[in-house]
């Protein structure tokens, strides 16, 4: 459906990412079918990064072999933690040993880029516990590690638990220490801290797909509530599976909403996303009109950003303020 609406000039896709929920749950045949379908509908480049998010319990020898054969180049294992206290707190069914097994199985199957998703800040555990968790992860030599600070927001399960006092919430100060200690540890181990929550063992192991979001490159999202961006417009699909399917069956694009970005909005996004990544963003003529030089100077003085060759980038300390920096340095 979407392919019919893509312009002729659309370059070949260089990344496919199956995520959101646990696509690994699908039987191998379906996964292969999805990839085949994509390949027949869209122009897919030769060295296309093809990634999938997987639950540790879904990774069997068989599934791993299947993923490799189907052409997946990258598998992100939702390990969450190697600390049983944290895993059970998060209500996951797997155990630490399942994640370890999954990584080994994937490795044996020949998957070259294995990622681990970790969560910290739960149960008020100290920095030392977090570091030993990371140490466990690093011992598996994953090419990629994502470290997410546990987010307690109103309206989420954790938010409800926290408001009932059933959840030990870390203070901003504690979260900050965990963040900095984790970053230092992984960098010492040779990882590149290339985005607020993401680390890669080498440039080529960074998530090419996610970098598109942060560098404002176009992407096409398929499936309910998936978002898309073509450089000037953003649109998002219907949220429910039912609504989504009904639109498709009626021959319509399953759109929920769309926005056309103004120059200022585009610049603001460029700045906000650029301030999440190590490579930062360039102060070109599109961005400059919106920049507040005094703010830039103040943030430089505080060591939250660096500025070299007209590139502004956050420091590791600056990552901690990625949501605030865009306010400070724009007019």
């Amino acid at each position: 459906m979407s392919s019919r609406f893509l312009p002729e000039t659309c370059p070949a896709f260089d990344s496919i990412h199956l995520g959101g929920g646990t696509p690994s749950l699908l039987a191998g045949e379906y996964l292969a079918e999805i990839l085949d379908c994509l390949r027949s509908c869209f122009r897919i480049g030769d060295n296309c990064e093809t990634a999938i998010e997987a639950d540790p319990l879904d990774i069997t020898d068989e599934k791993a072999a299947f993923l490799k054969a189907a052409g997946f180049t990258r598998v992100v294992v939702g390990a969450q933690s190697f600390d049983e206290r944290v895993i059970s707190f998060l209500g996951r069914r797997h155990r630490a040993k399942d994640s370890i097994a999954a990584v080994n199985v994937l490795r044996d199957a020949g998957i070259e880029n294995i990622g681990l998703d970790l969560i910290y800040g739960a149960e008020g555990l100290p920095v030392s516990a977090w570091i030993s968790d990371l140490d466990e992860a690093v011992s598996l030599s994953p090419e990629h590690i994502s470290c997410y600070c546990l987010t307690v927001e109103d309206g989420t399960v954790f938010g409800r638990l926290a408001s009932k006092g059933r959840l030990k919430v870390s203070s901003a100060e504690a979260e900050r220490e965990l963040f900095l200690a984790g970053s230092r540890f992984l960098r010492d181990k040779g990882y590149i801290h290339y985005e607020v929550s993401n680390f890669a063992s080498a440039e080529r192991h960074m998530s090419g797909h996610n970098l598109k979001y942060w560098r404002r490159e176009p992407y096409l999202g398929l499936g309910p509530s998936a978002h898309s961006f073509d450089g000037g417009r953003r649109w998002w699909n219907k949220r429910t599976v039912r609504g989504y399917c009904e639109s498709l069956e009626a021959g319509d694009l399953p759109l929920q909403g769309m926005e056309h970005l103004t120059e200022e909005q585009s610049a603001l996004e460029m700045i906000a996303m650029g301030l999440r990544i190590r490579v930062g963003f360039k102060l070109d003529e599109v961005i400059l009109p919106w920049i507040d030089q005094q703010g830039v100077d103040a943030m430089l003085a505080q060591g939250l950003i660096s500025c070299a060759g007209r590139i502004i980038a956050p420091t590791v300390e600056g990552y901690l303020f990625a949501d605030r920096l865009p306010l400070e340095i724009t007019k």
Partner: peptide, 15 residues
């Protein structure tokens, strides 16, 4: 502020 950052910011979060 000691920190002000959301952990995840992917395609759907940008808007």
């Amino acid at each position: 502020f000691r920190k002000d950052v959301t952990a995840k910011c992917y395609g759907g979060d940008i808007t």
